[in-house]
Design a protein around this nucleic acid. Structure first.
Lengths: 129, 129
DNA sequence: AAGGGAGATGACGTTGACGTAAGCGAGACG
DNA sequence: CGTCTCGCTTACGTCAACGTCATCTCCCTT
């Protein structure tokens, strides 16, 4: 309502990224802020995308992979062919993500075992403190 | 029993990595193959570590982070202080991994929603084929 | 008028994780 | 014996994802 548009500085504060990063993402066509004169103004759509970008990064996806995934999120009345391609791509990602989650769960389990072993190894000395 | 030791080439085939990568990991002290003359021979321990390294990479951990985690896995009768440090470190990693898993689950859910939307968008045309 | 921020545009620097090419040594083999 | 094949080292190249200047333009304030 108030301001659907945000300056680059406001974006930096809101998402804890640098201005360089935002310009870089624009150069890579991950974001597309509107221009008023020479200045960038970021829309609600840019913010939604940035959120997804940052999440994707935490999963270890490359910016290029993220860009392709992103393109699917705002296809409403697109070409059928294009949509199908993105659909397949997203399905692959989904199974990759599920596999990663399963593996992650396994690793978490192992790490927990290791931790409880470490605790028992630490216990006697700690008790003597 | 047969061969507890593997050559670099066998390792490459077994784990689908390049020789360069294995030497690189050794240089970074992630692996410590024994030397017979000048040649490397990888032990069972190296293989276990490599497996963990590759997994860690899939989770987006840096080699340095992985190295620290790895050091905990073969501490049996180490220094108490050292153990405690690694313990704390591992605990941090654990919560990071759990957070990552939760976020991943969330993202999987969203992606699934997106996919079923795409399916309904694709359905009419597909039915007409 | 002069300065001070906020933002922009090059363009070069950096770090991590290897790739790649050049050149050397040792064992295998026809 | 020559020459392959494996492996080793050294060293420069590369790619992604930004960081870091240097320089410039507006616009506002004092």
């Amino acid at each position: 309502m108030t301001d659907d548009l945000m300056t680059i500085r406001q974006m930096c504060d809101a998402f804890d990224v640098t201005a360089r990063t935002l310009r870089f993402y624009e150069a890579k066509e991950l974001l597309a802020p509107v221009r008023v004169g020479t200045k960038r103004l970021f829309t609600r759509r840019d913010r939604a995308r940035l959120k997804l970008i940052l999440r994707g990064k935490r999963f270890g996806f490359s910016l290029e992979e993220i860009r392709q995934l992103l393109d699917m999120y705002d296809m409403e009345g697109q070409q059928h062919l294009q949509l199908r391609k993105s659909y397949e791509l997203a399905r692959e990602r989904l199974s990759a993500m599920e596999a990663q989650r399963d593996e992650l769960n396994e690793a978490i389990g192992e790490l927990k075992d290791q931790l409880s072993w470490a605790e028992s190894a630490l216990a006697p000395r700690d008790a003597a403190e």
